[in-house]
Amino acid sequence: MKIGVCAKVTPDTGAQIKVVGNGIDTAGIKWVVNPYDAYAIEEAVKTVENHGGSVHLFTVGDDSVVAPLRAGGLAVGGEDLTQISDAALNDADSLGVAKALAASLKAAGVEAVFAGKESVDGVSSQVPAMVAELLGWPLVSIVTGFETDGSTFKATREIGGGVVEVVSGSLPAVFTCDKGLNTPRYAKLPQIMKAKRKKVIKQDLAAIGLSAADVAPKATESNFSEPAARPAGRMLSGSVQEQAKELVHLLRNEAKVL
C-alpha cells in the first residue's frame, strides 16, 4: 500500500513563543515535525510494516523544513519527501495548502493519507479535512486506533463523554491522528545517516497543475496577541477560618472552578 503522510514542521513545544508584528519571533526556535504528524508517520510506517508498501511524506514549505523532516520522518521509515515550494504559497491559507497537497498526493497515486489531527502552531485542524474533500475521499478525524486489511479499515475515535466510536469503511481515505494512537519510534542512528541520502522531490505549483490564482488566500490572519500576563498572586489574611471561607468564595465566584 502506498501511503501519503501530510507533515508540517512546527516550533518545538518547549520553545518560548514571542509575538512580533503579525507573526512570531523565530530566533532561537528549534523546529521539529509537528508532534501529531509524528503519530501519523508512525501509524503509516506500522501499516506498511504489516501489509507491505511504502510511506511518502508531503509538506508545503521552503528549504528550512527539509532537515527536520529528514530527522523526524525519513529517519523513522519514510521513503521520500515531496516538498511543495512556491512563492505563491508563502501567504496561502488552509485551502491553498490543502489544494497543493491534494494535487501532489493525487499525482503520486497514494491509497491512503495520514495526518496529524492539528498542528501545534496554527491549530486550525482544517487542512486534512480539505484534502479529503478535494480528493473526494472520506475523512476519519481524531483517530486513536487503526486497523486495516489493505483494502478496508476500522478506525477508533474517542468522542464526547469518553464514548468510543468505531468507524469502518473502504480505502482510500484520509485519517487524522491523535495522541494515544501509537508511540512514535526513536530514530536510530544508522537510519538518520541513511535519511541523508533519501530523495526529496521538490515541486512548484506548475509541477502539480496549479497556478498562483488557485492558491490565493481567501482568508488572512490579521493579528496575533500574546496571552495577558499572569496577575500577581493574592495573599489572604485573617484567621484560618476566614482565609478558608474567602478562598472558597474566590474559587467559586472569581476563578469559577468550583
Binding site: 532537515a67 529528514r70 530527522a71 529517519a75 536510530k188 542512528l189 538518520i192 541523508k196
Partner: peptide, 9 residues
Amino acid sequence: EMQRDLIDA
C-alpha cells in the same frame, strides 16, 4: 547537519 540530528536523537 548530520551531527546535529545524531545529537538530537
